Each structure stands twice: as C-alpha cells, then as structure tokens.
Amino acid sequence: MSNRNHHVVYPLNHFTVLDIVGKDAAAIVHNVTTNEIKSLKAGESGNPGEGRETFITDVRGKTIGHGYVIRHDFGFRFLGAGDQAETLAAHLDKYTIREDAVPRAMTDSYQSLILPGGIDPKVVEGLVAGHSVVLYSTTILGPGTLWCLVPAEGYEKVCGWLAQKDIELADENHFHQARVAAAFPWYFVDLDEKNLPQELDRDDLAVSFTKGCYLGQETVARLDALGQVQRKLVRWMIADCVPPVGTTLDADGKTVGRLTSVAADGNGSIALGYARRTHFEPHSTAEGRDETSGRTFTATVT
C-alpha cells in the first residue's frame, strides 16, 4: 500500500446510515444525543448541511451509539461504525410518542469510502460532479477527513474511476491502522453500551455541557462536575511488539489497562486501549505480555 495517504482511499464494509425524518426530528434527536444538534444548519437541494460528532445515550448515560449527526433538508442523518441502525432505530421509537419523527435504516442503499485529509481536491470535485456521491466532513483520520457515501448501484463505476486517477483502494485493515494512529474510537471495537461518554475522552468534540436536557444528561453532567471517571481510552505506543487485542497491561502488580485496537507501526505498534486513573497522563508506562509469542513489552501513553 502507498505510504502517501493522499493517494489512498479506504472502503468501509461495516457502517451505519440512519435517517430521522419528520417535523419533530430535531426534538427527538436532541433528546438522545450528547452534542448540540438543534443549531445545525440544513443543506439545500439534497446536499448535507452541518454535522457534529456525538454519542447517543440511554437514561443511564451509557453510550448505545457513536458517530456523526448531519442535518439535511429532509431531517437528520446518522453515520457510524458497524451495524448500529437497528438498536438506534428502536431507541428512537421508544421515546417517540406523539412526535412526528421516523427512523429509516438506509445502510443498504450505499457503499462507503473514507477519504483522508490532503487528497487531491480535483479528485473530490470529480467524485461530486460525476457520481452522485454525498460527502461529509469528519475527523476520523484527522482534520479534513471526508466520509463519502456512494449509491450502491454506482459503486463499481466510482471504484473504476478512482483507479483511472491512480487512487488506491486500501483494505479495511489499513483503514483501522490509520484511524488508530489518529486515535479515533470505533463502535463495537473500542466502545459499546457499557461505556460512559467521558471514558472516550472526546468531550471537546462530541459532548455539549450547555445544550440542556437529554437522556443520560444527569450522569454526564455529574461526571463532569466531579471528575470521577475511573477509566479512559488512551493511545499507547509499544516498541518491538504487536500484541493482540484484549491484552492487559500491568503496573505495580495491578492491571491498569487493556488494549482494544492494535496497529503495526514500524518495528512496534500503536494501540488504543483503556487506562485506569493512575495512567491517564502522557508518558505513563505499563507492562504487557504477548501470549502468542511469549514476549513481554512496555506500553507508553502518548
């Protein structure tokens, strides 16, 4: 695979597209998301408007979803990892009583490509002009990352056009290497319904503490006020070893971490994983053992 990211795009095989339509869609989406969404401006003529990263929480403040909410002229669109559509649609239906808001799973209508920041602007212009794609701004691989939704029936044509432009389609493993390097968590991999939003350390991007009431808001606000989260997702650097996902990390005879995503990086690896409060700070270290090779290693929080 090319090392120059602007010559590479990443197809996604597992993703979620969920639309929420109806005149009360804003109120319902507001009631289940941690970020401010009512102020988002809608796009025109089918184009996407503004969007924000957010968690979708239940009444306990647990993260039953994570991704991006974008405002369209038809309502709202949620983009996320894995197959979150069924769970989130049921969650929205549960709290829609008299309101006019309907969730519609749209994943099967699209294929997804992730375009890293720095890709040739002419490629982006060509995709939009000739292929009926929709582009959304994200931070998945860092600033400037675009999530490209391609109509399913036009996907092969788009892939052929990209090949003609000397753009390589990497596999999904390479995508996960890139997003681990960018420290972006992936639902069903780095978090699930057992997590609290603050454990992902994305408050500045995905949580509003001024938006008003929503499901789980009391728990989120209390944690912010007391600072009592006991574990947090951090990025670990590991020299001379690529341990498997699930490897635990120890310090002073206690387990202080667990790896959730691991990507090779030169002779070593970079990983996302949870750390206890004692290891939140950069340069904290812990020891692990690669059960496959029997080697021990040191992991350092970056």
Rank of each mutant, 00 (worst) to 15 (best):
E99P: 05
F78L: 14
H72T: 14
R71T: 10
L146K: 09
R98I: 15
V189W: 03
A163N: 12
V150T: 05
R98S: 15
A101G: 05
I97P: 01
Y95T: 11
L79I: 09
V124I: 14
E99G: 09
F78S: 06
T145D: 00
V180D: 10
A181T: 13
A152R: 08
A85N: 12
V158R: 00
G67I: 05
W147M: 04
I167R: 02
L191G: 06
D108W: 04
W147P: 03
A152N: 10
K157I: 11
G82K: 12
T139C: 01
F76P: 06
F74I: 11
F74V: 10
Y68A: 04
A101H: 07
R104E: 15
A178W: 00
K165D: 10
Y136L: 03
C148S: 08
F78I: 15
L92D: 12
E86A: 13
G126V: 10
E99F: 03
I114G: 06
L92A: 11
K94D: 07
R179Q: 13
L79W: 00
V133P: 07
Q164N: 14
M106I: 05
F188G: 08
A90D: 15
I97T: 14
E86D: 13
Y110H: 11
A129K: 15
V124W: 00
D190H: 03
T138L: 00
D166N: 11
A181F: 05
H176M: 12
